[in-house]
Design a protein around this nucleic acid. Structure first.
Length: 707
DNA sequence: GATTAGGCTTCG
């Protein structure tokens, strides 16, 4: 390192890189001698500004004072630094600082001192392997001992909207998106960090380093990063940042009011009150100007089909096969659906199984695939993780009792899209602090629970229609759902009694049971719907089709649509088909009719509008607080069955019957019915003078594999 | 010393 900062605490250097070198006093310096392995040390008495000579090489001249011992005189010598070293030194030197210089050359200066003596000058270049050490006093309040801090900096930060290709800049920004470091196909880890700043510009940065720790320590969106020596280039017509030589990063938590603690693996870095202010400014700006929808979700809040980031502790791990790896984790909360269980009896399992057994339904099984397997293998049991873009999927297991068959699968799919990956969080992370507390608390509860033998196995205890179910079981019973939402999962549930009091139009998320439905006959529920006018018709028998087509053909083209300003119209009478009339429109170009070869010709629709098959049903929904009828119009999304095909397929009809029996089991009390999570929208219907509110189901689907 | 990847969900 050509420039190193040595932190001093109470005047004692925390690292002593100079012990292997020999100190030389100023008075013994002679021009032309070999000073390899030696160094000089002194206080900066003056610092020139950075100059560029005729050769365009940066030069910095300083005066260095040495006092050999308390009685001797003060000796001064001039030292010149050149090139990049001069620029770097200019940023960190302050008058009065103690510095040391190793690997230098001594020349006699052309100028003379005041007493007429010939002066010496030390010259230091990076190319000469010169190293400059700067002693800096530590700033209190930072825990990392190895970090050296300088009291002020000369770094300038470029707003993101001022970046141009070719620049090497220092920038600050709020993290909007990131990919945690992952092994590239080349030699390095790669990470991606997209930042924004108050200039309203966005910059995606690509960072490569073979050293994992050298990557920005970004843990979540909203974190604030400072990049030094970032190169700007153009990719796909957009500016892009990439690490250039000497790249360095510091990351801060983005929460307003949180302690401003720099995260970096760099031994030496610059941190000033300016940086402090910058972080505070960006935090304040981000809190009111950018929407960072948090994907950090606790297990108790997860949805059946969702991508989210999970902060958890690793309890165990096992290689399942070449293609997947199991991670058993927990976050102290219980999932709304039981986690699937990956069979581990034939696997080499790392972790305390008795502990996992004790925590039972507080743990979840995650399968990670492809590129994540290597990372998963290296994880230490007990470590705190954040798993990014984890995917949940609700599955039914093969079981006699349909209601017991729901289980949540957790997948970390291959690839790095959407920042998919795993990162170990350090113990001092504030989210880890919270997690640890939650785990302690949950662990105590789990102990009590097993002592009281109230613990239940998901596999054999659910559901029960008897009245004597435990509170927990009852709670889980309510949480099971035979339908899932395809969107708007962030909405909170509303009770039917509340919805019934509200005005229309509105949208609600509900959890209710299907008390009954109409029509009971499948054939009556399939209708034809006109996508143009939204009218519904019965599905005609084949024999009636000819009559319908003939009626359509008998209609005369609408005269109001003829000879508009954009086209000329002609009516063509067919020779056959009973002299049927067809309107043809010739589209004009600038008011004139083009030659026939170039003319756009429109033939008016021939009396036929393609209709769409739909399921139309009325669901009577009951959540215990109220009952309402909701209209279901499904073109295939709800039941996963094409309404156009069902009339010709015995299998599909059977499948539909099974689904309906599952949603609304015949011969059973409503207590045992499954819960349905649905979105409904309310709307006003006017019939003469009477106005009423109706409800329609939307963005809801029957859970996978229940169909 | 160049290369890596260059946000934009798997399909297990």
């Amino acid at each position: 390192m050509p420039l190193e900062l040595i932190k001093e605490v109470n005047g004692v250097p925390q690292v002593e890189p100079l012990t292997k070198l020999q100190k030389v006093h100023f008075r013994s310096l002679q021009p032309g001698c070999d000073y390899s392995g030696k160094y000089v040390q002194g206080k900066l008495s003056h610092i020139s500004s950075l100059t560029y000579g005729g050769n365009r090489i940066a030069t910095l001249n300083v005066g260095l004072q040495e006092q050999e011992n308390s009685n001797s005189d003060i000796n001064t010598i001039n030292v010149s630094f050149f090139g990049k070293l001069a620029k770097d030194c200019a940023k960190v030197f302050y008058k009065g600082d103690t510095i040391a210089v190793a690997e230098f050359i001594v020349l006699s200066s052309s100028s003379t001192s005041r007493d007429g003596e010939h002066c010496l000058v030390l010259k230091a270049f990076e190319d000469l392997q010169s190293t400059v050490y700067v002693y800096v006093k530590s700033v209190r309040g930072f825990s990392t001992q190895s970090v050296s801090l300088v009291p002020a900096s000369h770094y300038a930060y470029t707003p993101l909207n001022k970046l141009k290709a070719g620049m090497i800049v220092n920038v600050y920004g709020v993290v909007k998106f990131f990919k945690p470091p992952y092994l590239s196909r080349g030699t390095d880890y790669c990470s991606v960090v997209t930042i924004v700043d108050p200039s309203d510009a966005k910059l995606t940065c690509l960072l490569f380093s073979g050293n994992y720790e050298a990557h920005p320590m970004v843990y979540k969106n909203g974190d604030i990063v400072r990049f030094h020596r970032l190169k700007i280039q153009i990719y796909k017509n957009e500016t892009q940042g990439i690490n250039s030589s000497g790249f360095a990063s510091v990351t801060f938590e983005g929460t307003v009011g949180a302690p401003i603690t720099p995260r970096t693996s760099n031994k030496c870095f610059n941190f000033t009150t300016e940086d402090h202010k910058m972080v505070e400014t960006l935090r304040a700006w981000a809190s009111s100007n950018i929407l960072l929808s948090s994907t950090l979700v606790k297990l108790c809040d997860i949805q059946p089909m969702q991508y989210f980031d999970l902060t958890c502790q690793l309890l165990g791990k096992a290689e399942v096969d070449g293609a997947s790896f199991l991670l058993k984790v927990w976050d102290g909360t219980r999932t709304p659906f039981p986690s699937w269980r990956v069979l581990i009896q034939d696997l080499v399992f790392h972790g305390d199984l008795s502990d996992i057994q004790r925590l039972q339904n507080l743990t979840v099984d995650i399968l990670v695939y492809d590129n994540h397997i290597q990372v998963a293998k290296s994880l230490k049991v007990g470590s705190f993780l954040r798993i990014y873009s984890l995917h949940t999927k609700l599955q039914s297991l093969n079981s006699e009792n349909r209601a017991t068959s729901l289980a949540l699968e957790f997948h970390l799919h291959g690839g790095t899209s959407y920042g998919r990956g795993i990162r170990v969080l350090p113990e001092n992370n504030s989210d880890v602090d919270h997690l640890k507390k939650a785990l302690e608390c949950a662990s105590l509860t789990a102990n009590q629970c097993s002592d009281d033998t109230c613990q239940l196995d998901y596999e054999d205890s659910f559901p029960s229609s008897s009245g004597s179910v435990s509170i927990y079981e009852e709670e889980r019973c309510q949480q099971l759902s035979a339908t899932i939402l395809t969107d708007h999962q962030y909405l909170k549930n509303s009770q039917l009694c509340t919805i019934l009091k509200q005005k229309a139009p509105q949208q609600f998320r509900i959890r209710a049971k299907l008390r009954s439905y109409k029509p009971r006959s499948l054939f009556q529920s399939v209708k034809l719907r006109c996508p143009k006018c939204h009218s519904l018709q019965e599905v005609p028998f084949e024999g009636d089709l000819d009559i319908i087509l003939q009626k359509g053909a008998a209609k005369t083209p609408n005269t109001k649509l003829q000879n508009a300003s954009l086209y000329e119209s002609k009516i063509w009478t067919t020779k056959y088909q009973g002299g049927r009339k067809v309107a043809i429109h010739f589209v004009k170009n600038n008011g004139n009719l083009p030659l026939s070869n170039d003319c756009l010709i429109l033939v008016e629709v021939l009396g036929i509008v393609p209709l769409q098959h739909v399921f139309v049903m009325t669901f009577t929904l009951d959540d215990g607080t109220g009952v309402l009828d909701a209209y279901l119009m499904d073109t295939g999304e709800f039941f996963h069955i094409a309404p156009s095909e069902i009339l010709n397929s015995d299998d599909l009809q059977q499948s539909m019957d099974t689904t309906m029996d599952m949603l609304c089991p015949p011969g059973t009390k409503i207590d045992a019915y499954p819960w349905l999570e649905c979105f409904i929208k309310s709307y006003n219907v006017t019939n003469g003078t009477e106005q009423r509110i109706c409800y329609q189901i939307f963005d809801t689907t029957v859970a996978d594999d229940l169909t």
